[in-house]
Computed example of a mutant assay.
Amino acid sequence: MSDRLPPLTALRAFDAAARHMSFAKAAAELNVTPAALSFQIKSLEEHLGRPLFRRLNRAVELTEEGRALAPGAQEGFEVLTAAWRAARRLQDNTTLTVTAGPALTAKWLAPRLYDFARAHPEIDLRISTSLRLVDLARDEVDVAIRFGQGSDAGLYSVSARKEWMIPVMTPELANRFPTPESLRDAPLIFDESISFLDPPVDWPTWFRAVGIDFTPQRGAHFSNADHAIDAAVAGVGVVLGRRPMIIKDVIEGRLVMPFKTAVETDARFRFVCLAGAETQPKIAAFRDWFLAEIAKTAHISDGLTIVHVRDIPPK
């Protein structure tokens, strides 16, 4: 039996029909007539010498041979599509697609994009806000800004500065709650977006870092960091703010850091792209700008006592 592959168009027709289990839907996906799709599948079956579908009255089902072929056909077209997209991206020297989380985009990235656009008018920057872990080899994304404690094996990755959290509040609330001890009675805000960190960096952890054994039970809980920060700006309460999320509001005076103890975590923001892609001018330009922007606000750490979470005694 020959291992010569059948025509690609016939395999494409089979893949679509196997995924939809419908010749009509597969034909619509491929923008061909049902008769044309049926002809392609029939030619594939003749090439194999066995039927791939059982034609029923109002449906189709895969034969044993069809079930054997379907996973490989689907995977093969996915790999081929990803490779084609990667090849096309290499030809595009002007469009740069960056994905980042909604909170970082709102609180750090978006306010600075004008400066990047002004410095690099030749680059058409596109921002995709998502917490989904994209596949840089498959998805049409050039750069991902990721946060966490995980690794980026097989990718080019550059870590940002140390990530720490510190209580921030409006100046008015700072006057009402001038000491760490007074925060026992303050309205606290909980940022649940960092609940996955291990060890945790939360209110009980910060209180232990300043020598206070206190586990707050009440307060407003937010699943998004930017919403938690916005609530603090509105005077709702005191939030344990993450460095990049609070920088703009602190520098511009909407929030203050009345206490000087911050808790550092192992987690970092990382600039990530495919290995080798970092040499592309558009990606190198965005990386250099990203790191330079972070360096501009490094002074926010001046005068702080930054305690690593692993150095804080557990409860």
Rank of each mutant, 00 (worst) to 15 (best):
D3P: 09
D3H: 15
D3I: 15
D3K: 14
R4G: 10
L5E: 15
P6M: 15
T9F: 14
T9C: 14
L11G: 09
A13L: 14
F14I: 11
D15Q: 15
A17Y: 14
A17T: 12
A18R: 02
A18M: 13
R19K: 14
M21I: 08
M21L: 15
M21T: 12
M21G: 10
F23T: 05
A24M: 11
A24T: 11
A24C: 02
A24R: 11
K25C: 03
K25W: 11
A26I: 07
A26V: 07
A27E: 06
A27V: 06
A27N: 03
E29N: 08
L30Q: 02
V32W: 03
V32P: 05
V32G: 02
T33Q: 06
P34K: 00
A35G: 00
A36Y: 12
L37V: 02
L37D: 01
L37N: 01
L37T: 05
S38V: 04
S38M: 04
F39M: 04
F39K: 05
I41N: 07
I41L: 08
I41W: 05
I41M: 06
K42A: 09
S43D: 05
S43F: 10
S43Q: 12
L44K: 08
L44Q: 02
L44V: 07
E46F: 02
E46K: 03
H47L: 10
G49Y: 08
G49N: 03
G49W: 09
R50N: 07
P51M: 04
P51Y: 03
F53Q: 06
R55M: 09
L56E: 13
N57C: 07
R58A: 14
R58S: 13
R58D: 13
V60R: 04
E61V: 14
E61L: 12
E61G: 09
T63N: 14
T63I: 04
E64G: 06
E64A: 12
E64V: 09
E65P: 04
G66F: 08
G66Y: 11
R67Y: 03
A68N: 07
L69V: 00
A70R: 04
A70W: 02
P71E: 00
P71R: 00
G72W: 06
A73P: 00
Q74L: 00
Q74R: 01
Q74W: 00
G76E: 00
E78N: 03
E78Q: 01
V79M: 07
V79N: 02
L80S: 05
L80N: 03
L80Y: 00
T81W: 06
A83P: 03
A83Y: 14
A86R: 12
A86P: 04
R88M: 14
R88P: 08
R89H: 13
